[in-house]
Amino acid sequence: MAFLNAVLAAKGMDLDAKGESNEQLRGHNPSYRISVQTDGKLLLGSAYTKKMNLQPGDEFEISLGRKHIHLSKVA
């Protein structure tokens, strides 16, 4: 096992690492596109809420642009 760990370390791989590099490998990157669900709702995924540091109960003002929907966080 020590030999295999040394080989992995030489290749720059650490299977026991617990850091930001492993966090970035999980999941997928947000595409910044969402679709309207069959019930007419827009579902904003957790990738977006984490990136915007949103908390449960945060409120937004919705404004319609020519081609976009803008969400502005209410302070």
Rank of each mutant, 00 (worst) to 15 (best):
K11P: 01
A47E: 04
G65D: 15
H28A: 14
V74S: 08
I34V: 14
G57F: 11
E23I: 07
K67T: 15
L15V: 06
D14V: 00
L71G: 00
G12Q: 01
D39M: 04
E59F: 04
L15M: 09
M1Q: 09
L42E: 13
G27E: 07
L42D: 07
Q37R: 08
L43M: 09
K11S: 07
A47S: 12
R33A: 11
R26T: 08
H68E: 00
K11H: 11
I69P: 10
L44F: 15
G65V: 01
S31N: 13
Q55I: 01
Y48P: 02
R33G: 04
L71Y: 03
V74W: 04
F3R: 14
A2V: 06
E23W: 15
K18M: 08
N5Y: 11
Q37D: 11
K18C: 05
P30K: 01
H28M: 12
S21P: 00
Y48T: 03
A75S: 12
E59A: 12
M52F: 14
D16I: 00
K41L: 08
F60G: 02
L4D: 13
V74Y: 03
G40K: 04
K11N: 07
N22W: 13
R33Q: 12
H68T: 15
K51C: 09
G40E: 06
K41N: 05
E61H: 10
E23N: 14
F60E: 03
R26V: 15
L25V: 10
M13L: 12
A9E: 07
Y48K: 00
A47D: 06
E20H: 01
S21K: 06
D14E: 06
M1K: 08
Y32I: 02
F60V: 08
S31K: 13
E23R: 07
E61W: 07
I34E: 08
Q55L: 04
N5W: 08
G40S: 12
D39K: 01
E61P: 02
K11W: 09
Q24T: 09
G57V: 04
A17I: 02
D39C: 03
